[in-house]
Amino acid sequence: MDFYQVLQIIVPSMIGLAAPLIFTALGGVFSERTGVVNIGLEGLMVIGAFTGIVFNLTFADVFGAATPWIAVLVAMVAGTIFSLLHAVASITFRADQTVSGVAINLLAVGLTLFLVKKLYGKGQTDMVTENFDRVDVKFLSDIPIIGKIFFSNGYYISYIAIVLAVVVWYIIFKTPFGLRIRAVGEHPMAADTMGVNVAKIRYAGVLLSGAFAGIGGAVHAMTVSNEFSHSTINGQGFMAIAAMIFGKWHPLGAMGAALFFGLAQSLSIVGASLPFFKDIPSVYLLIAPYVLTIIALTGFIGRADAPKASGLPYIKGKR
């Protein structure tokens, strides 16, 4: 097996595994840029995965091949609604944002397993029949050399994730709404003085993070596990948070980090069957995303700083 063939296996697998992380990390960027820490991304992904799979199983006969796409949209709505809990607790009720996020995670796992047992009478769902198909992208896959690596055997939804990262970058850095998001996250009092409704922008940030994490969870469930159980989402949300930090709270950086973490994950899965990689114990690849994030935070790879007001409730009139 030569290196070119190895790339043809690893790269599509990397992009596929990275897509859910990209969606969720972009959601995290929205939330944290408005100054609300969202540890609950993991739980929101669980909600998305559960909703996506249950919708898919229930309506596969009705919508046919379009089912996974509609399921993703429904999961997005479910994630948004669920993130409202985090928004109300941490913005309106001034709860500790980390505590509220932890509660979201516990609640999501408890609630979805409760419902799975209620709906199906067992701890996990059946396998979905309508999946996202792996496709060769038209025209692009015919480009010599890189076409075979980057545009063959992938999911359309993965490419959407990458395009979306650019869209989010544009929103946050080039539009008035994005300017408000950043202002509220850096210096809410100044933003308030200038007539920006801090609470409203923060609500928008958290709800967007719920929407994106819902998508991320559903995409992970329908491309990787194809069913829902207690272990369908197992740390992907926290890895997305890691990607967001490693990408320095920047949408494109978060996407790059998510792709890198996707690579580490894919190597830990398929690496055992490949030359070059089978000699590396998989534990190094498994812990790489987390250790690198810590190193990034410490400042050895350029310092990563959170938005200044991140984690602090904004109380009008308080200095």
């Binding site: 607790a89 709860a95 509220s100 932890v102 509660a103 408890g110 047992k117």
Partner: peptide
């Protein structure tokens, strides 16, 4: 799992004690 739900909700209520 109903108990996990109850525990998570208790945390929410304690965390939102301001309210």
């Amino acid at each position: 799992e109903i108990v996990d739900i109850v525990i998570a909700l208790i945390i929410f209520f304690v965390a939102s004690s301001y309210f």
